[in-house]
Design a protein around this nucleic acid. Sequence first.
DNA 1: CCTTGTAATACTCACATAGAGCATAATTAG
DNA 2: CTAATTATGCTCTATGTGAGTATTACAAGG
Lengths: 313, 313
Amino acid sequence: MSGTDLSIGLSAVIVSVTDEVPHVLTVDRAEAGEEHRHALPFGPLDPAGDRTLELGLRGWVRQQTGLELGYVEQLYTFGDRDRIVSASVGGRVISVAYLALMRESDAELGRQAEWNDVYSFLRWEDWRRGRPSVIDERIAPALGQWVMNGPPEEQRDRRERVEITFGLGRSQWDGERVLERYELLYEAGLVPEAGASHSDALGTRAMALDHRRILATALARLRGKLKYRPLVFEVMPPEFTLLQLQKVVEALSGVRLHKQNFRRLVDRGGLVEGTGRVDARTGGRPAELFRFRREVVRERPSPGVGLPSLRSV
Amino acid sequence: MSGTDLSIGLSAVIVSVTDEVPHVLTVDRAEAGEEHRHALPFGPLDPAGDRTLELGLRGWVRQQTGLELGYVEQLYTFGDRDRIVSASVGGRVISVAYLALMRESDAELGRQAEWNDVYSFLRWEDWRRGRPSVIDERIAPALGQWVMNGPPEEQRDRRERVEITFGLGRSQWDGERVLERYELLYEAGLVPEAGASHSDALGTRAMALDHRRILATALARLRGKLKYRPLVFEVMPPEFTLLQLQKVVEALSGVRLHKQNFRRLVDRGGLVEGTGRVDARTGGRPAELFRFRREVVRERPSPGVGLPSLRSV
DNA sequence: CCTTGTAATACTCACATAGAGCATAATTAG
DNA sequence: CTAATTATGCTCTATGTGAGTATTACAAGG
């Protein structure tokens, strides 16, 4: 009984940042009959052929998007029996999801692959221009409703959960709770993937199968790890100005940072070193070009960009 | 071809702390013909029966150890084709590993299950009584040898890797690099699991299959997460003195902490609250009993015990 | 009762870091 | 030359962290 009806799926959340917009790579599954066309690149593991899970993943990505992945890390393994899986596969599918980072410019995209704004799938996560209006206009009321609709003995817990995950009452917004937020919206029936009902209640794009949950997992991981590992540099060109670096960190973390302090942090912190050359800019004083100081990894236990609580300008 | 020759294994690293010793639960696999008898509780997923991976895991743990797990989180999925798997299973096994925390006193152990000192498997990780002698006496020389044995063009990279993971040259010890250290020792052929050769070169206990790697993954995750999530309280009794709490944190993180500062941290940080009652002690002024303040989760984005660089007394 | 030992708990101090804002420098557009 | 724009330097303050000293509350032994 063990070997039957079981397969391993491999899927990748491939992230890059261009023009201050965090992008995720999707493939079009419309013709595969999925309700929502945006899917992550994915495919089954070949138990006999793929030497490692990661190699299997790289193969599928190459085949579906034409890309050769660089930085890759394992994210999470999804395996609920009742999980939404492609109609085209019979039996139980366990999905191992990966997070990959890359420079978009390195990429020559295949046919059905395209870059999409991460926040078009998770609108409430982008606080760079202040508190997203969707929270107060749609999410808070809808979740309030969900609290009230619960059995009386559960309402207290529900309300607390809403407040913590969305930073409502006394709680403050925690940029890393991306997954908790998505799962709460899912449970409350506010995302189309959860069933046909309240479809599009939030005016946000959905993804095929459970891929938006995987995307949320990836963004949560990425935001957390930014703080203590020099991950940003995986999506930066080899040389960059400090403002460019800051904009990328802001794009991923979803908050604005204080410019002078950010500069002090990465410079004094030994994360970057100046090249002496400057950038041919548009407007304003030319900025010096910096590069990542790889040595920092051996000097400090956890070099990252340490985000602030939450900034406005 | 997808469904054949493939099974999912579920394994658990179950951790508790007693008398300042971090424990991991093992089952005896001697009679299953494993070379090393200490194994983590594990078993295959029933694709048709187990509704979620976690439920499947809880079932296996219950069956093999008699325990009902509390806090559980997914750790990592191991799936290399050439990975060591039990001789008793044919085909490819993908293993999903979990970390579980519990109060040892809650436990009534089954037949072949027993608690073991985590550091008996990873001796070099315990810095509470200063730098472990095994590092300078055995590990550093052996890894130095491994560096020299490498091809010339690789020696530089090898040396740097050794220095970073074990905090040797200019680098400082990073308590979280548990997995990197184990994997380096593995590659260098210094652990018995890597093959019969240098067996026991470090005088440390091994585990069955690749279970010591999983244990290392768990300890790394646990140490990292301690800092920003109130995980410790999963292994603490409902009420405890601050010294008891400190000893447990020290046991898990492997370093000593400054007493007064630790108190300040958890108290001022809102992690605990006094009960007003005191502990019937041995020697010295009686200590107040504290309990975990659950509300802290909603107040602060990442409440943990924030470890220091490295303390002596 | 007094002394000693052992922890618990209270304070203090120096120093590093983070958040914020002001000031100055080096460009381009006009 | 002037205004606009961005880079970069500096200062100030609040807070946090590492470390040490002092005081308090007990138990046990004489």
